[in-house]
Amino acid sequence: MKELIQIHNLSFSFGKQQVLAELTANFYASELTVILGRNGSGKSTLFNILSGMERLYKGEVLFGSQDRKHIKSGKNSGFRIGFMTQFHQTTFPFTVFDVVLTGRAAFSRFAPSQVDLDLVAENLRAFRLWHLKDKPYTALSGGERQLVLLCRILVQQPDVLLLDEPTNHLDLHYQVAVMEHLKRLVETGTTVVSVMHDPNLALLYGDRFYVMQDKKLHELEEKDPAVLLSTLENTYNVALTDVQHAGRTFIIPKRKPL
């Protein structure tokens, strides 16, 4: 397995408050890497650094052999990096089709080409969103918007896909649909790094797992259920119990007696 993203001694502070402290981790090519952790543990900050939105950090972030700060955006950059953030609101009621089409903006300078239009149609159909194509984006439900934004990122056919809670707002049907789609992308060579909240969904689909704790990333070894359980208990600060099914470990919280 090739290391695609190397993070070395990464530190970041908001003013006096340190968020990341000498964080070191590697993410591998053509894998689905999952980052778990509590709210406010610094996952989104790490995400912002990887996506290039936050540049005032100390330490080293390499994509392949290139420094993240030197990777230019655009179709001719060494890495096409697509990312999806958690919160998005738009002022104008663009149609779903037009919103997704903007995902191709790096490819056609002036008007969108036929290839651009075809890719939008293909992705909307893959997520069964085609019937919404002429609806205003602002009239969609939270889950539908999330899927539309995911389509928008995917039409640029990124090499690296960075996602911050992609299954947020989605019902179980779409959670599975999104994870299955990500899995297919990984099989065709895309590298996916995703922040997730549901450990079971993560364990079901992920290839490699990290937990964010104490301003650092710790790799989770899935193989030993006892270690997994205690690490996650420690991370989330709740009592957990594990369930073995079909050779996989799943975890559920222990209910406190009334």
Binding site: S73, K75, I81, H88, T91, D98, A105
Partner: peptide, 15 residues
Amino acid sequence: NLLALGDQEALAVGV
């Protein structure tokens, strides 16, 4: 159209 979605959304698709 792209710019109307916001700076972050432009960066997210490589512009």
